[in-house]
Computed example of a mutant assay.
Amino acid sequence: MTGTRVLVLNSGSSSVKYQLIDMADESRPASGLVERIGEEGGTADHAAALRRVADELDGQGLGLDSPELAAIGHRVVHGGTRFTRPTLITDDVLAGIRDLVPLAPLHNPANITGIEVARRLRPDLPQVAVFDTAFHATIPEAAARYAVDAATADRYGIRRYGFHGTSHAYVSRATAALLGKDPAEVNVIVLHLGNGASASAVRGGVCVDTSMGLTPLEGLVMGTRSGDIDPAVVFHLERVAGLDTDEIDTLLNKKSGLLGLCGDNDMREIGRRMAEGDQAAQLAFDVYVHRLRRYVGAFTAVLGRVDAIAFTAGVGENSVAVRTAALLGLDNIGVTMDPVRNAVRGNGARVVSAPSSRVTVAVVPTDEELEIARDTYALACGTAGG
């Protein structure tokens, strides 16, 4: 195999994102997004969307039939307990991913469709599934298990899986590099704060705890998801409000979080409203930050020693206010922020804590596509690819 390029595909329910990455130098010859799949005025289906991706690449002289294309990497949301590392896709593997649809009914079906279409377009090419859950497969049973009936949990796969794994893997290693150390020497708390948000505790390059659980609903306050909540709220809404399961699912996943608290899920807009004295926006911000601080404290206890806290994704990388409020007054656990450093905006990884801070606080832009490309190239071509 002589090609050095990997096509990374992220097939969502109504969109396909792609990046073509040349692993010789990790450059990006092409990238794009096909949206509104199956919607009026949009692309008919995923097969048509993938053909459009192929056409866009052809138009740039980078077609799917190019000998430079070494492999295709697919983001797959849920790997369950079966798929705990990047996996070459076979018919059996695809069937296994399909078996996991009940654990990710909104995500895995779209991922599967993308894989099926790509395999039809290039049946000769190695294709690799990279799972959002895989990085978290190392968490110990004490962290993975819920305290529910064990037989029921085993029968229905009820346990903590965690998500955003490609981001947490990439950022934890990039944070170690920023410190000039090997990942095995560093304990990191990673805070992936986008519209979806999650935290992880990474000891020596290995994930030992994470905030998301059976689904991406658990954990931090998110754009539209509630995060941690008393399970009895579900029963209360059934009995008192008369809501059915689907209505509660929609409420907690799509109408809660920042959106539910103040009507906005964009942290920039919430910040603007706070500056104008909007109390609902202020409360939403305070609830969001309180949950963050709770997880920073909990994961500090889990790790015992924390060398770095890394902020990533849209909010984590761009919100000075969130970073400030989340870590304010935590000198007792070794965190001392530098307001000048923290206020500086930039595109690369950077330290925002004071030189005297025992725990380094960093902003580390995530790159999930590159993480998927590296995993795909290493497995398909037998090299780390940078």
Rank of each mutant, 00 (worst) to 15 (best):
Y161L: 04
A151L: 08
R145H: 11
Y146F: 13
D154E: 15
A174Y: 10
T152Y: 07
E141N: 08
Y146L: 08
A169W: 11
P140W: 13
G157E: 10
G157L: 06
A143P: 00
A176M: 07
R145P: 01
G162C: 11
A142N: 15
A153G: 01
A147G: 13
A153C: 03
R155P: 10
R173E: 14
Y161P: 02
R160W: 05
R159D: 11
R173M: 04
T175E: 07
A169C: 07
S172Y: 09
Y156N: 05
Y170L: 08
A174Q: 13
A147Q: 12
R159W: 05
Y170Q: 01
R159F: 04
R155C: 10
R155A: 15
R173T: 01
S167A: 15
T166D: 08
S172E: 09
A169H: 15
T166F: 13
A174V: 14
G157H: 07
V148Q: 01
G157I: 12
R160E: 08
A169N: 13
A169I: 01
E141M: 06
A143E: 14
Y161I: 02
R155G: 11
F163D: 01
Y156T: 05
V171A: 02
H164K: 07
A144M: 09
T152L: 14
I158D: 01
A151T: 11
H168R: 05
R159L: 06
Y146Q: 08
F163H: 04
R173V: 00
A144T: 10
A169F: 10
V171L: 01
Y161G: 04
G162W: 11
F163S: 02
R160P: 00
V171R: 01
A150T: 09
E141F: 01
S167Y: 13
T175S: 12
T166K: 04
H164G: 05
A142D: 15
R159Q: 14
A142E: 15
A150L: 03
A144H: 06
Y156F: 15
A143F: 15
I158Q: 02
Y156G: 05
R160K: 15
R159Y: 08
P140F: 08
R145T: 14
D149P: 14
G165I: 06
G165C: 10
T166I: 15
S167W: 12
S172D: 08
E141I: 04
Y156Q: 04
F163W: 06
S172W: 07
H168G: 05
R145G: 00
Y161R: 05
P140V: 04
A151W: 00
A143L: 13
A150W: 06
I158N: 02
A147R: 12
H168E: 05
D149N: 12
V148K: 00
D154H: 10
D154W: 04
T152P: 03
R173L: 03
D149E: 11
V171S: 02
T152A: 13
S167L: 14
D154F: 02
A144N: 05
Y146M: 04
G162D: 09
A174P: 08
V148Y: 03
V171P: 00
A147T: 14
V171T: 03
A174M: 12
H164M: 04
F163R: 02
G157Y: 09
D154Y: 04
Y170A: 04
A174D: 07
Y170H: 06
S167D: 06
P140Q: 13
E141C: 01
S172P: 00
S172A: 14
R155I: 03
V171M: 02
A142R: 15
R160H: 07
A153I: 07
S167G: 06
V148S: 00
R155T: 11
